[in-house]
Simulated scan of single mutants.
Amino acid sequence: GPMLAVGAVGALIVVVGAVLLAPGGDDAATAAPPPTAAPTTAAPELPAGVECSGADCAGQDPEAMGCGGEFARTVATGTVGGGRIEVRYSKVCSAAWARLTGAAVGDTVRITAGEGAQDGEVMGATEAYTPMVAVRKPSDAEGCATLTSGTKGCAEPAG
């Protein structure tokens, strides 16, 4: 008779399992609120229109994310050929990016911070800017440009 006993216990477990799973409606209801509540934890610190901060900004467009304009300042400038490199830094976004002006199509600009780097290329205008890199302070970033002629120049914020 031992086999019979094992069979009975197995059946009992299945029944208990079904009872635990049955009130699935409650599980779904309790699981729903957190996703809607989560974004509000980060939001209050950021001014209206600012969409990211720190690592969330990495690789994003600074203008589209609201980190440019009034929230950004130029922390370093450099020249390369006839162009000008700027390292732009947004304290609100804890991010930096590089901008190249007075450039020609095909010239490239890169921002580097620690392990991260982002590139921008002049496509049809005379300027380009890179996506952002996350930085704690302006001096964590360096902006460099390479012209199609091979000339290179950098701008590095001071400590």
Rank of each mutant, 00 (worst) to 15 (best):
T112H: 06
P33N: 10
A58Y: 11
D61P: 02
G159R: 13
T148I: 11
G150K: 00
Q60A: 12
L20G: 05
A103C: 10
G54E: 10
E127H: 10
E86R: 15
G143K: 03
A96F: 06
A72F: 04
A32R: 14
G10S: 06
V6T: 12
K152R: 15
A28F: 12
G54K: 12
L21I: 09
V122E: 07
E86N: 12
V75P: 00
A11V: 08
A48F: 11
A28K: 10
A117G: 03
T151H: 14
A48Y: 09
V87F: 03
R99T: 13
A58L: 05
K137P: 04
T151W: 13
E142L: 09
T41F: 03
V6R: 12
P157M: 06
C52R: 01
C67Y: 04
L20P: 02
V109L: 09
E156W: 10
C57S: 06
R99H: 05
C57G: 05
V14I: 15
L100F: 11
E70V: 12
A76I: 07
A103Q: 04
S94C: 01
I13E: 02
T79D: 14
V80T: 10
Q60K: 14
Q118Y: 02
V50I: 13
C93T: 06
V80Y: 06
A29S: 07
L21Y: 03
G7E: 03
A113C: 02
G69R: 00
Q118W: 01
T40M: 11
V9W: 05
E115Q: 13
C154S: 02
D107Q: 04
T151N: 15
E51N: 07
G153P: 14
G159S: 15
L21W: 08
